[in-house]
Computed example of a mutant assay.
Amino acid sequence: MDTYENIKEYLGDKASFYLEHVCEKITKDEIYTPNGNSKEEIFSNSNRHPQALRSLAQLYNHGNLANTGYLSILPIDQGIEHSAAFSFYKNPDYFDPENIIKLAIEAGCNGVASTFGVLGLYSRKYAHKIPFIVKVNHNELLTYPNKYDQTLFGKVKDAWNMGAIGIGATIYFGSKESNRQIKEISEAFEEAHNLGMATILWCYTRNEAFKTEKEDYHTAADVTGQANHIGVTIQADIIKQKLPTNNYGFKNIDFGKYNDEMYETLTTKHPIDLCRLQVANCYMGRIGLISSGGGSKGESDLVEAITTAVINKRAGGSGLIMGRKAFQKPFGEGVNILQSVQQVYLEDKIDIA
């Protein structure tokens, strides 16, 4: 069975729903789609430092997806974000930072994203073997009661000194601390670019009001799309976002700016159309959108990962940044799920919707 047929088999009775859909609101001709020359076409006329372009080239030209314009990044910062014991009890090998880096290398990822501690401990051994992306801020879970705020854990220059090609950061858009986070991370991104590093922004939304009695709008297409748009405004080179699960966040929560014509003009209920709206908010795809792989649910992880990759690719996204579905499994299974996702981006028959 060839790769395309294999992917169709994983998608099951929803194969045609995902693989044959055509976006008619924001069409594929209106967006910039990834290709092997993406970074040069997008950034060569920008204000990015020439060394930052080299760093982006290192990322895009590494691993199984090298020179395709697509990215497969392994992110493991959950030891801080979700607590180490809870994150690693299914596979305690990943308490050891070296195994995190080994998984990314063995799976042929473009890069590995993790904490100062994880990447710093093995920087001399591996920084020249796979692109490092240092996550510079985190939400810690030891404050009681828990609070939800992203705090800087180190300096951009420290990431540069360990040989990292880029930094990653999270902003909780919509939170009461978001203005401070926007200021901190825009300054961090400016410093990173001046040092010749790439920047990736985790554009997450966080506000109790976004979850109503009827629905959770933290992953609404309109709300997350605006988070993306703020992210590219502070000059993120790549945006990380969760796949949209619904829409009408602004309308149903009744905040921000919205009208019915806006929704009718831009999107439908189809998941690829909803993701297309996220892509459009990333300057019509000129800043790459990589989708989060989400949490591990067990046996359904491979199907969910492939489905997410198909939605992202057909919407015009630039890849997947997947962690828990891979590292919360035995090493070989983790490699397989990462490479199965990469096959979606390598398969020419899966085109832009």
Rank of each mutant, 00 (worst) to 15 (best):
V118A: 10
V118S: 13
L119W: 15
G120R: 15
Y122T: 07
Y122V: 08
R124S: 10
R124C: 02
R124E: 11
K125M: 07
K125G: 01
A127V: 01
A127F: 08
H128Q: 14
P131Y: 15
F132R: 06
V134S: 03
V134R: 15
K135G: 06
V136F: 11
N139K: 14
E140I: 01
L142R: 10
Y144A: 08
Y144P: 02
P145C: 06
P145W: 04
N146C: 05
G154C: 09
V156E: 06
V156Y: 10
V156P: 07
V156R: 07
D158V: 02
A159M: 12
A159V: 08
N161I: 01
G166C: 12
I167W: 07
G168W: 09
G168R: 04
Y172N: 12
G174A: 09
S175W: 13
K176M: 08
E177I: 02
S178P: 05
S178R: 12
S178A: 13
S178F: 11
I182L: 14
K183V: 11
I185T: 03
A188H: 05
A188Y: 03
E190N: 11
E190W: 08
A192Y: 06
N194I: 06
G196N: 15
G196P: 10
M197C: 06
I200G: 03
I200T: 02
W202H: 13
C203N: 07
T205G: 00
T205Q: 01
E208K: 15
A209Q: 13
A209C: 12
A209N: 14
E213T: 00
K214N: 14
E215G: 07
E215Y: 08
E215I: 09
D216G: 00
D216W: 00
D216H: 00
D216I: 00
H218T: 03
T219Y: 00
A220H: 02
A220F: 05
T224D: 10
G225A: 14
G225L: 13
N228V: 06
N228L: 08
I230L: 09
V232N: 04
I234M: 12
I234V: 05
A236L: 02
A236Q: 03
D237W: 13
D237V: 07
I238E: 03
I238V: 10
I239V: 06
I239K: 05
K240N: 03
Q241M: 11
Q241P: 01
L243N: 04
N246M: 00
N247Y: 11
Y248K: 10
F250V: 01
G256L: 05
K257N: 08
Y258A: 01
Y258C: 01
D260S: 13
E261D: 12
M262G: 03
